[in-house]
Each structure stands twice: as C-alpha cells, then as structure tokens.
Design a protein around this nucleic acid. Structure first.
Length: 492
RNA sequence: GCACCGGUGGCGAAGUGGCUAACGCGCAGGUCUGCAAAACCUGUAUACGCGGGUUCAAUCCCCGCCCGGUGCUCCA
C-alpha cells in the first residue's frame, strides 16, 4: 500500500516511497531543549510517529533522523543565568523529552543527532558555502548566507521575496549584513558565551545550518522526506534548502511534510495566554497518557487541532470502549468455526482503515471502520454468533490498529507514576489533582482484597457491607464493574 | 496590509457534484443487575456560515462577503 502524502513543495498529494527502494530516509526537526516539551510540540512528534508507524506496518523500512538542538540563544542565556555549562543545563531537558516521548508511546527514530556533536560538519558546510561565494563574514566574525546566491529561495513556502524591500525591518544589531534577509550561518562568540574554536573562527552554529549538516551527514545530499511543524516552513526549512542545495546542486528533500499547529480553546497556545500545557501538566491533572496521545493524533495532521479538556475526556472514553471491547472479546467462551459475515466485516475494516491512513494519514477517517467493526462484533457476541475464528480475525484488526495508534494496550500506569515522581522532586506536588492522588493511594493488592471482601459479602447477601466497600472505593476513583464474567475494577 | 487554512447535528470530526452526509463523545430508551454502576444494543438531533454564479443537479466547483485561526519575527 502506497502512502499519498501532501507535499508542501509541490502543493499536492505525492506518493511517498523510498528513492533507493530500500528504506525511506526521513529527517524530522526535533526539540530545542531549553524547557519541558508542551503539548504542541508533542502533537508534531506524534503525527510523525503515526507516519513512521504506518510505513513500518505497510512494509516500508525507515531511516529516521531527528536532531536535538542543544545550543541556541535561549539555552545559552538560561544556562548562564543558572551559572552552569550548557551541557548540564540541557541534560535534564533532554532526559525529560525522551521520558515524555516514552509516555506518549512515540517510537525512537533510528538516529538522534545532537547539534553540539556535529560542529565540524557544520563548519565544513560554511566553508563550502564561502567557497561558492554564498557566504560572507562580517566584521564581528559572524558568517551569513547571501540570499542573492540562491534564486530559488521561497520555493517551499511559496514566498516571492524579490519585491520585498530591504530595510523594512532591519535589526539594528545586524546592520553589517549585505541584505536584511541574509541569515546567520555562524555566530561569532560574544564574551563569556559558549563557543567552539574552528577554522571559520570562534563561535557557534546558526540554527539552520545544524539541520542541513546533520541531515546530510546521515541521509546523504538528497533524501526522501523532511518533516516538522508548520512554523518551521519559513524561514527554517527554506534556509535549509538554500544552504544545502547551494552546496550540493541536488534537491535536498524530495518531500516536505508540515504538521499544523495546535490551538488551546481556540487560540494559539502561549504562556502569556495562560493556556500553555506541558505533557507533565496534563498527567498531573490526572489525564491518561493514552488519552493525550489519541486526542493529539485523532485530528489529521494537516488541520489545526483545537485542544480542549472536553476533547481529552472524549478520547478517554473512546479508549475505554476499545479496551473494554478487546477484553470482552478475549474472555468470551466461543464455539469453533467462523461466521462469514464477521470475516467479511473484519476484512473490510482492515482495508478501510489502511486506505484511510494511506490517504494523507487521515487518522479521523481511519478510526471509523474500527468502531464499526466493534459494534458488529458486540452484536454478534450478544447473539452468540461470534465464533472462535472470528475472534482471531478481529483481534488481528485491533492489533493492526494499535500498531499505529497504540492506545489499546494499557501502558498508562508508568507515565503517571513517572509524572508523580517528577512532581515530588520538582516541588510541584501542589499541582497534582487530588483525585489523582486518591486514585493512587491504594495499591492494586489492597484494591483486590477489598473487591474480594465485597464479593464475599454479596454472596452472603450482606449488601450493606458490599455497598459500603463499593462507595469507599468509588471515593478514591476506583470503579467496580460487575459482569457475567466476574468482577472487574479500574482506576477512573 | 499581504498570504494561506478552516466554518458540517449539543460538542469533536470525516466525507462526497446526484445514493440512508461516516465515526467518536454526549443525551434518551432497552437488556443485564440485590440496587446501582459498568458493559452492550437501539435510538437521537429540521447539521453542511451568508449571498450570488456554473450545472440537469452543489455541502462539495467559481466569485464576493462575514466569522475564526495561522504565517509574514524566536516558536512544534
């Protein structure tokens, strides 16, 4: 199954296949590690995760590179303010970033490249640009890219900069540049700043050159796909193209994917708006990692996603339905054989599901056939018409669904535990929702014991005692569910 | 200001030039249950921003308008 994915460069849906026929080479812009990641960041990484999982599921190998920008102005400033080397400052945010990716079940790229470990490659690129006459050094020792050297500039973001007047918004600090739009390749060291002593002078890399250098290092001069948030399209990705193609004279990435922004309550998320959430904020409010994943993934990547707590609640309930169904199906006592109608339903669900994803990763559309199948299967189960062979077929569909969405398997305990441990360490226990603390206040064993006692009481028709236990557990967010197959409980 | 994207039932959100306009949540009824809850089933809503145009036919194409958002600057 071939994926048709919108390509920013061509403005249309293009088939995405590995040029080398072996593995899809893709580069995705990673985080700048100056703070904890927020849910907007993670929407992008989650959507790219959907892409990579779909490719893997449908038999395309991937060579996926993600950078970590571990040196930039904010990092230098913040580290200096805390009187520590930038490596020490970024270390905790790098670690937190990967913990958060794990919480959200985002698969690791094959290659993770840190900017500070690729300085020589960046210097080399600047030298090549200088040799080609596309880079120049200003009096302070910084290097800039000469936009005039790349006539195709603007082809990705579809901007025509030719008519733009230089000087419209000139940064006073940068009066030395030949043109206001020329961008920094290498920033000369200022006193006391972190810097590297290199052949092009003492300084540190500009942001854009990092990605060009690392992408080419691991993927070659030309590769299949470059992805990132929509905000990076201009100028970051445009600049990458300009630098890279000026040096190689080859197309940099054939395909560009941009994930649109997430809004919160209809507005752009910003600290100043008071609608800014990190993943940890949400976990401490008691939301499950799986619900956050599903909520951020269910709106297709090319649409803005309006994040709300109602949306999180919806995702929570949708996941409950998926999980409950699979549990019911797995536990049911079934006769041997197969029901042709259900076999056909399973096959159709699988086909429709994959077709939806193949169509520009339409995750919203992809959910529908799964829920259709669940309804058909539940009805058949009620009527005793679901047979063992049907169970196998349906479970296979769910497994396939979870290979991409990854929300049915319940891994929610660990992220919550991690977030609570972090909150304790960071002195943020006051931010933890009381319900969450209550919910975690009893161990599984303690709950099992209480549930068993209640079952015993019920058998003895001591309903007062039984109801008392039920209420007591309910107050702590533990829900008891009586069913034909026995008693289940879950943390709400 | 320029550019781009969107406006679908109570909410979220697919989709299509003509067929019952998905799916999820919510809500209602039913089944089950000691009672509940949960679960499941069924049902639910006079839903395609407004005004023109093209067409035998438009929610879907074109034009204009209104509303919301985003980019043009560090930003996922």
């Amino acid at each position: 199954m071939t994926l048709r994915l919108f390509n920013t460069l061509t403005g249309q849906l293009d088939e995405l296949t590995p040029a080398d026929g072996v593995a899809l080479r893709m580069y995705a812009c990673g985080p700048t590690v100056y703070d904890y990641g927020h849910i907007g960041n993670f929407r992008t990484f989650l959507q790219i995760d959907i892409l990579r999982r779909f490719l893997l599921l449908t038999g395309t190998q991937v060579r996926h590179v993600m950078n970590i920008t571990d040196v930039d102005d904010k990092i230098i400033r913040n580290a200096a303010a805390q009187n520590m080397p930038i490596g020490e400052y970024t270390a905790r945010f790098v670690q937190a970033f990967f913990e958060d990716l794990d919480s959200l079940r985002v698969q690791r790229p094959e290659i993770i490249a840190r900017a500070t470990e690729h300085i020589p490659r960046m210097v080399e690129l600047v030298q090549k640009l200088a040799a080609a006459g596309a880079a120049y050094q200003t009096e302070d020792g910084s290097w800039y890219f000469r936009l005039a050297a790349f006539p195709e500039y603007g082809k990705l973001s579809k901007k025509d900069l030719s008519g733009m007047e230089d000087g419209a918004r000139v940064d006073l600090d940068e009066y030395e540049k030949d043109s206001a739009r020329d961008f920094a390749l290498w920033k000369a060291a200022k006193p006391g700043e972190t810097s590297w002593d290199t052949a092009i002078g003492r300084g540190r890399p500009g942001w854009h050159i990092e990605c060009s250098a690392m992408a080419m290092e691991y993927l070659g001069d030309s590769f299949d796909l470059h992805a990132g948030g929509e905000d990076l399209m201009f100028p970051h990705h445009e600049n990458e193209i300009a630098q890279s193609e000026t040096v190689t004279h080859k197309p940099f990435a054939r395909h560009w994917m941009h994930v649109r922004f997430l809004l919160v309550d209809g507005r752009k998320m910003a600290k100043s708006e008071g609608n800014f959430f990190t993943l940890r904020d949400l976990l401490l409010k008691g939301y499950k990692a799986s619900a956050i994943r599903l909520a951020l993934v269910s709106v297709p990547y090319r649409h803005q996603l309006n994040f709300t707590f109602e949306g999180l609640a919806e995702a929570t309930n949708a996941i409950e339905r998926l999980r409950t169904f699979r549990q019911r199906l797995t536990q049911a006592a079934l006769a041997a054989g197969a029901n042709p109608a259900l076999q056909a339903a399973a096959e159709k669900a699988q086909a429709d599901y994959l077709a939806a994803l193949a169509n520009d990763l339409n995750t919203a559309e992809a959910r529908a056939p799964i829920f259709d199948l669940i309804r058909a299967a539940n009805t058949a189960l009620d009527q005793g018409q679901l047979l063992a062979g049907d169970r196998d077929a349906i479970l296979r569909v769910l497994t396939s669904f979870d290979a991409v969405f990854d929300v049915i398997d319940d891994h929610d305990a660990e992220p919550t535990r991690m977030a609570l441990a972090w909150a304790a360490e960071a002195g943020r226990l006051t931010d933890v929702a009381p319900e969450l603390l209550a919910r975690q206040s009893l161990t599984d064993e303690a709950i099992d014991a209480l549930v068993a006692e209640r079952t015993q009481a019920k058998r003895q028709r001591n309903f007062a005692r039984a109801d008392h236990i039920r209420n007591e557990l309910a107050e702590k967010g533990i829900m008891i569910e009586d069913s034909k197959d026995g008693v289940r409980w879950k943390r709400k």
